[in-house]
Design a protein around this nucleic acid. Sequence first.
DNA 1: GCGACGCGTGGAAACGATTACATCGCCTTA
DNA 2: TAAGGCGATGTAATCGTTTCCACGCGTCGC
Lengths: 335, 335
Amino acid sequence: MASIKDVAALAGVSVATVSRVLNAHPGVRPGTRTKVLHAVSELGYRPNGVARSLRTHQTRTLGLVIGDVLNPFFTELARSVEDAARSRGYSVIIGNADEQPALQDHHVRTLLDRRIDGLLVSPTDGDVGALRDAVETGIPVVFVDRWLHGVDVPVVRADGRRAVHRLVAHLHALGHRRLAIITGPAATSTSTERVGAFREALRAFGLALPAEYVAQGDFQTASGRQAAAAFLDLPEPPEVVFATDNLMALGVMEELRSRGLRVPRDMALAAFDDIPWFLHTDPPLTAIAQPTADLGHSAVQVLTDLAEGRGAGSVTLSARLTARRSCGEDEGSRR
Amino acid sequence: MASIKDVAALAGVSVATVSRVLNAHPGVRPGTRTKVLHAVSELGYRPNGVARSLRTHQTRTLGLVIGDVLNPFFTELARSVEDAARSRGYSVIIGNADEQPALQDHHVRTLLDRRIDGLLVSPTDGDVGALRDAVETGIPVVFVDRWLHGVDVPVVRADGRRAVHRLVAHLHALGHRRLAIITGPAATSTSTERVGAFREALRAFGLALPAEYVAQGDFQTASGRQAAAAFLDLPEPPEVVFATDNLMALGVMEELRSRGLRVPRDMALAAFDDIPWFLHTDPPLTAIAQPTADLGHSAVQVLTDLAEGRGAGSVTLSARLTARRSCGEDEGSRR
DNA sequence: GCGACGCGTGGAAACGATTACATCGCCTTA
DNA sequence: TAAGGCGATGTAATCGTTTCCACGCGTCGC
């Protein structure tokens, strides 16, 4: 593969001059310029990004470490992050942590080794060694969606408290009184926020949240299914289950279906995170929708601001409730 | 950030020695070795991957360019690719082409500039300038799922012909005679294969495929919806629609729902690509499932074999039919 | 007792770019 | 006419590694 030296030789100039025309530096005579350009296209020359990065100390690459790519929420987040990054001239390397701290650590570490310009992470619970190291090395880090206590970096997220409150009101209005929740891993911020808001809202409506109505999940399908099974085996099963993410809601549906039960007749269901498929499930699922694309864009905004030396702070957007039929009949929602 | 020089200085050895212990070269005295290791952990030193890549001419990075990350098939593919790559010590950079040749070109170009060790692509139709350049530069390229005529690289894919034939047999057995299809972009190989197999199977059953029963889509939701609308507006609409990917099937469901029609009563529906959500749609969707994870693993296998100088050829796996209720009642599938 | 050999280590040249600094005409100006 | 300045270009250092080669020294065989 041709290098800058080959171009210089062919154009009959020095490498410095080639570099100058390639980087649009002023003060290159038009004639020289075209000579160089000719040589470039003649050789099909493309600058070696690795060499450039070594010299300039920037890779124009952002890292994104997420809990689970297969979760449509994260997929969409990743997509919007990539879009925003590209429009600013950055590439992004996605690390899929699969909700495992060890894998998250691995990804953060490799990204750091690659000297990315900034790191976007939706942290999983647990050991955060690499993450803390990252912050300490001074590389820009921004949390998106989830965050970690004690790690002081900007957070871009959607506040779900109000939407959860609306959801509970909706459920209450439909006559439900026994509400259960499936949480995420204990230490993920989103999970604690959602559970907290749920508990608070229940209290506001004078409802109890017995311990057996709180199941701990891990944001994955299987755990939703197990939680549903446990609820169903209770002497007095809940009337509604609120799954704090979409995959666990899917798990609940799987369990209900396998027992021949129907939503919402036998058990109502609502989820955090709205996705296109929820419109077409049987029945369409009531969900709390996050402004996912905005989340991704803002996160990149904040991160690149940091990476390019402009200051930047946290951003909080808000989520909203989309009521469908999975919690029971509302006015006119059935056609 | 500490460099190898700092480590060398602290350990009182030369950089060459440090490099040797870091790369597990033989012939370093145990004492020296521990001195170096001490210095490394003292400084929290991590080798600079960029410099290393420049020197060794390998980045331990693979590129993956796909049609659409939001398509669950590709999401799963990306995930399995990443898994397989990681287990072999590679990272992967995903480029989302959004089914646009120009974007695909952009990604291929940037990946090449980053000097990735190998490129996995599920090519979109159209201009393939960058792709051809890539092949010409000699960098290992492997097609996965889709491929391009006239570009001679290994292809890892699932053969859907047999499964499509089974699907048609299934539909025929259920009494359907007016079958329609929604294709992908004309020049994607998967689309032509699927359409070809469909047409052939119809012929085998003595059924016609009138031109108005063939709608051209682009593998995205909206086009599925438009196609469904066109079919429904026909004087004699088809009894079944076969969408050649899952997002277009979603579009068909959207259109039917918006018109107050039901599957399969008013129109039956089958899709290529099976995904977890299809179990829970209303009704569960009949689909042709690809061995997605195997596809990803094989693709990485082939690509790394190429990248590491071992020869490698194409791989063809096969897809299979998963019949559910969206095409009408079968024996015992309704509980 | 001396050359050959091997082992552990260091010095320095790459890799391919960017960029500070030097150089060299040539034009302007006093 | 000579000095100064400026615009265009070249030279070389540098980024942080890996790796080839050389070197010093102890051991072995003759």
